[in-house]
Write a protein that binds this DNA or RNA. Sequence first.
DNA 1: TTGTACGCGTTATCAT
DNA 2: ATGATAACGCGTACAA
Lengths: 379, 379
Amino acid sequence: MQTVTLRDVAQAAGVSPATASRVLSGNPATSAVAREKVQAAAAQLGFSPNAQARSLRSTRTDSIALLISDVRNPYFADLAHSVELAARELGLVTFIGNANEDPEQQDEFLGAMLSRRVDGVLAVPQGLGDASHATATPALERLLARRIPTVLVDRTLPEVPALSVTAESTQAVHDAVGALHELGHRRIAVIGGPEHTSTAQERYASYAAALQAHGLPLDERLIFHGDFRSATGAEGARWLLDLRQDPETCPTAVLIADSPMAIGALAVLREAGVRVGTDLSVVTFDEIEAFALHDPPLSTISHDVGAMGRLAVEALASLLNGEAAVSAETAGAAVGSSVLRSEFTLRGSIGPAPGAPTAAPTPTPTTVKTTPPGPPPAT
Amino acid sequence: MQTVTLRDVAQAAGVSPATASRVLSGNPATSAVAREKVQAAAAQLGFSPNAQARSLRSTRTDSIALLISDVRNPYFADLAHSVELAARELGLVTFIGNANEDPEQQDEFLGAMLSRRVDGVLAVPQGLGDASHATATPALERLLARRIPTVLVDRTLPEVPALSVTAESTQAVHDAVGALHELGHRRIAVIGGPEHTSTAQERYASYAAALQAHGLPLDERLIFHGDFRSATGAEGARWLLDLRQDPETCPTAVLIADSPMAIGALAVLREAGVRVGTDLSVVTFDEIEAFALHDPPLSTISHDVGAMGRLAVEALASLLNGEAAVSAETAGAAVGSSVLRSEFTLRGSIGPAPGAPTAAPTPTPTTVKTTPPGPPPAT
DNA sequence: TTGTACGCGTTATCAT
DNA sequence: ATGATAACGCGTACAA
């Protein structure tokens, strides 16, 4: 691991370290001769600049960190992909870190990135409070205290003043519940996310609002709290099967708050012989490629993850350029956040409610976009 | 972004920078008083050591890089997860990078990691040769030239002497083809991977060997070359549908070389009304959670990704400790590599060949493990 | 046990 | 256009 330094290159090229540095970092104040000699020497010696030393002087590292909450969730994989692409466009390298839905792991990664002086951070944050209003973890606090350009993505922490890019689903859930209602569904269950995340909260709230708007009662017994991972989706499905034993509470439809839970739940339902779209209508949040495996096609509530990633990078870039320094001053909660709108897509996993008295003919609600399933285009 | 330095901490604690440094890096030569004062000051000021400066002197960074070829491939997401866990166990932070199946993007990431002086690198490598024997990209070459501890995971590059952890599937494919053969299948198609990857090569070779072992002819017309991504899986399925028009070449079964291609292909097949397991038997490589969405359950050829990740981290750790320095000396090809064995799992996506004369009763091959489908346990 | 001084590899500044 | 020199933040040999 003998290190080739700038001095070595300079010496080999017969110039001073300063000149070598200028050539290699594209400083225009160089002669053609010097340029050639230095570049040849660098190539010959296999020189790669020591970024540590470099950014020790220049403070820029041309890299950002992306903290996601679960690598194995396809939704976040998609997010990572779009962030990386957008960042690359701007000449930034992205370091992906996985919090694994664990505040400690989040802080380890953030700490490491903090030490490495990344130019900025994109984070799907883990909060710290057990209950309703989660606060920032220590590393996150330091990040903000140090005024390191930071943008929260997908989720927010209510008490943390930071730029954010999120999605909201009130209208979409309203549409979904409306479609179900028209088909005769009256008891719509939810397999939801962990209550300490803003996304889960938002989805519960949209659900409650939609029920009310359609004149349906909110029944706490129809709500299952999962953790956004497949195992609890499966649990939720078993809970649902139990619920269906009792004709009084028996739900005829279910909303599932993310794709891993949907995968877990649908596997259990199929094993139990429940026919999706006939015995039970299903709407799931997020839209991932693997949903193409399911028959009937799944009705979804989703937003454009690619757009979310790009927006987040844009927001971060503007912070990096010091543009939005003002908004960082703004006290209070959400600071200059962008919100994407989710959309409801009606597909075959929704059908007439089993016990309903001759439901409406065919489900053709006009407010709702109907997209054919099938493999999405390549990128 | 005012930086809190060690000097600031020292000053606040009323000691010299040296003492502060000693305290914060756990040097035993410190007094209890100093320790307390320094730690208090550090906490108070929110000091986080500048890793750049630190490793400029000390060379260890307690971090490794993991380069994967496609974040959106669930198989690699699983790999990333297991690597991260194993590394964490050893006190190492993992930086995940995405090559996106693109040598250039690989080199950008590797270059950045090289500059950041990670202690070691785990890589699912992109090769450079267009055809049969791919060689290392420039960044990969430098990595090895600099003798930075490196382990190739999942794939190898034939010409690159490096430790590797891979899987092999000869026996598993033999079992799969055997099961199909018993059920009367004679024309088994393949939707394979890009020929420049070692995994795709290995799978083609296993396929050819298995055909021969079961007395079936190798027909080039039954082989489709994809690129491990879903779009080409869909293409492959369309190609397969065409092939089925001609009764002479019509395949009754297909092997798909990875899960994204399987997702793409199965969506097309379903849309075309082809009944998997009845009209067409399907075996797919890799085993991902989302496969639980498919009915009938998919027969798979897969290995333990978790184990692969752990093995890779172990191998890297031994290099970090200088243990395997010897093997790095060994000239020639594969150096001290581990190879995992894939297994075939028979499930409902396989059935009797449509045109076959009263096939064997029920498929109960003794050499084959039969696992019920369903959601895997949580982690 | 503690402080002083130097160097890690690079770039910015100031001369020339 | 180029070179000498200082400084980035930290660890450590050496002296005290």
